[in-house]
């Protein structure tokens, strides 16, 4: 059977590592991260940019990986949840999520963590309003958000003390 489409070879820089992958132009960044590169921490929840489960960082900025094609990510630095996880243990923000019970089913959690991490990197003094506003693009069906907000604020305070 003839293939329905050509594949092209691209270089992706993900979590500081170069990956050479063969992709169809229509494959979204989310699908390629998950199925070609094997980073399944990036989750897919709506494929129209509303739910935020697929959020990754592109050159440090949160973006929807379901609304980008993998070919577009060439030349950029992509960070996924695997990339913000230390080799052993958890990052201070991840620890704070655990301490504050900021996750239940955990499906939205990677996107939530990346958005929150990007916020704290930019605005180390973000108040509750700023945290809530930054997280509006990440839907969580389990937690009611309160413990997530608490976790981010606590991580912020911890960062200040250091």
């Amino acid at each position: 059977m003839a293939a329905v489409e050509d594949r092209i070879s691209i270089q992706l820089q993900v979590n500081g590592r170069q990956h050479q992958v063969e992709v169809a132009p229509r494959w979204t960044l989310a699908d390629v991260l998950r199925h070609q590169i094997g980073l399944t921490g990036t989750h897919i929840g709506c494929e129209q940019g509303v739910c935020g489960a697929c959020t990754v960082l592109l050159d440090g900025e949160p973006v929807r990986s379901c609304l980008m094609f993998a070919v577009q990510a060439q030349g950029h630095h992509v960070t996924t949840v695997e990339g913000v996880t230390p080799e052993t243990g958890l990052s201070p923000l991840q620890e704070s999520f655990r301490d504050h019970h900021a996750l239940q089913c955990g499906y939205c959690t990677p996107g939530m963590l990346l958005t929150a991490q990007a916020l704290l990197d930019r605005n180390p003094t973000a108040d509750e309003g700023a945290v809530r506003e930054a997280l509006t693009g990440n839907l969580c069906r389990c937690t009611g958000y309160q413990f997530i907000v608490d976790a981010v604020l606590a991580a912020r305070d911890q960062g200040r003390d250091e």
């Binding site: 998950r34 199925h35 980073l39 399944t40 921490g41 990036t42 989750h43 897919i44 996924t80 949840v81 695997e82 996880t85 958890l90 991840q94 999520f97 655990r98 301490d99 019970h101 996750l103 955990g106 499906y107 959690t109 990677p110 963590l113």
Partner: peptide, 20 residues
Amino acid sequence: SRVEDPRLLSGQARFLDDIQ
């Protein structure tokens, strides 16, 4: 604190679509 959390927080948990 939940024992489930570390794998969920680090992107290591396996959901249905992660079965390949």
